[in-house]
Each structure stands twice: as C-alpha cells, then as structure tokens.
Nucleic acid binder design. Structure first.
Lengths: 126, 126
DNA sequence: CCGCATCCGTTTTGATACTG
DNA sequence: CAGTATCAAAACGGATGCGG
C-alpha cells in the first residue's frame, strides 16, 4: 500500500485503476473515517481517540502519517510544554470531501437497510 | 472487518460512523476495484485475474466471498464440465455505483497531479 | 500529561502447489 | 476453470516505556 508510487499492482502500467489509486488514499483501515472527521474541522491526536475509541495509538499514528505523506492532511506541531499536534485537511485533501460525504450518505442510508437485509433476507418472506 | 455485524469499533454504538460502514463494504484491499469492474458487466473468476493480475487467487476468492456475504454481488455457478462462475452486482450492489464512479473520477483526476506533486514537489518549477 | 516508538502475540495477506 | 491447502511475510492490536 505504501509502495503505491513504485507501480500499481492491479492494472497494466500506463493504465492503473483509478479506483485503486483512490482506495489507496482513503481505503486504509481508518483513513476514510479520519478524513471524515477532519471535514468538520481541525482535530488533535487525542480527539481522534475519543471519537474512534477502537483505533489504537499505533494505528492512529501510522494512518495519520500516511495521510500526511499522501499530502491530504497537514500536521501542525505546537512546541509547547503540554504537547499539541493538530491535524487538518490540505487543499488536496479537500478534493476528497465529496467522496467521503457520499460514503457517509450511503452508509447512513443503507446501514439500517443492510441490517434488515442481512438479518431478515431480501426475498425471504416465508 | 468480518464481524461488522457484531458491533462497530469506531464509534459509540447507536451511532456508528457511516463512513466506517461504507468502507467496510468497499474498502477492502480489492473490493472497490472488483466492484468497479463489475459495473460494466458480469465477470468470471479468471477475467478478474486478467484485469488485475496482482490479485492472488486466494485474495480474489476471499474478497468475492465477502462481497457476496455483504449482498453486493451475486455468484452464479454453472454446473458444467469446464466450471464456470459468474459474478455480478446485485440490486444492493448497484447502489454503490455512484461512489465507485466518483472514486474512479477522483483517481483519474488526481493520479497525474499526485504524481507530479510527489515526484516533482509542489513548488518545483520545471 | 501528550504524542509516538518498540516489543510481542494475533490476524490478514502473499506465494506456491495441488484438487475437482 | 475455479477454486482450496499450506506456509511465510506483513499488517495490526495491546502493553510498555521514552522524550518533551
């Protein structure tokens, strides 16, 4: 996933699945979620932990690093006695907003439906 | 990822990040790509392998199984002497098309830009 | 206290070979 | 053709410890 820059695996070179490229940026285990929460404003490290308690510090650090590496988020370090690091979307990162928001909308719409589908079945009436 | 049905990790229950839900469906390592290629028609197992050579049979099987389990694709098995299995989007799966297509469009738009950013740097005038 | 790196056990992914 | 089995590698989760 990190070696994206050294050739895409999925499709013949020169082509390269656009979807693969996009998923490499937002498809990481938590990246989409982190980006989603960055849409409505700057966040600190521990804020993410509060919002998404099941992310480990380790993964949070790694995912944020990768997002930073990809140029979609900015990492502002305040050299203070109580350390403070703020993460925000870059210009480039904002171009992902439509996708993230659409994913949010789809999730909202189909989470309930999916549950009823999964648990009750689509055409499972008697 | 598979135990999605038994509680979301990211957010407090009752809430549940919609984005997380969506990414659970399309965010798997190859799921988005597979779905993307299913948009323009039914595909057979080996067709996927040709389109995305770097997917191993193992992962292809696993990812397709999960997509099937999530109800977004349909697996049609033809009981023939040369086995034949066709994968296609379900009704539910088609609801993901807008997202996939938007990811495709974003990828197309920014793949080149990202490359120039990554390889040449933002302010590196030729 | 906040952010992050390291060690270790568990889970996921990859590579290869084999089967109906 | 469409998978399955097996083993090795990498990613991930949890706990701990360090620097500021």
């Amino acid at each position: 996933m990190r070696d994206r820059k050294s050739g895409y695996g999925g499709c013949p070179e020169g082509e390269g699945c656009p979807v693969e490229f996009t998923l490499d940026v937002i498809g990481g285990k938590w990246k989409g979620v982190l980006l989603y929460h960055l849409i409505d404003g700057t966040k600190r490290f521990n804020e993410f932990r509060k919002i998404c308690p099941s992310i480990t510090q380790r993964m949070l650090t790694l995912q944020l690093r990768e997002l930073e590496e990809d140029g979609v988020i900015h990492r502002e370090v305040y050299q203070q006695v109580p350390p403070k690091v703020e993460y925000s979307l870059t210009e480039f990162g904002r171009t992902l907003e439509p996708i993230i928001l659409q994913m949010k909308q789809w999730g909202e719409t189909y989470k309930k439906k999916a549950r009823s589908l999964i648990f009750n079945g689509p055409g499972q009436s008697s």
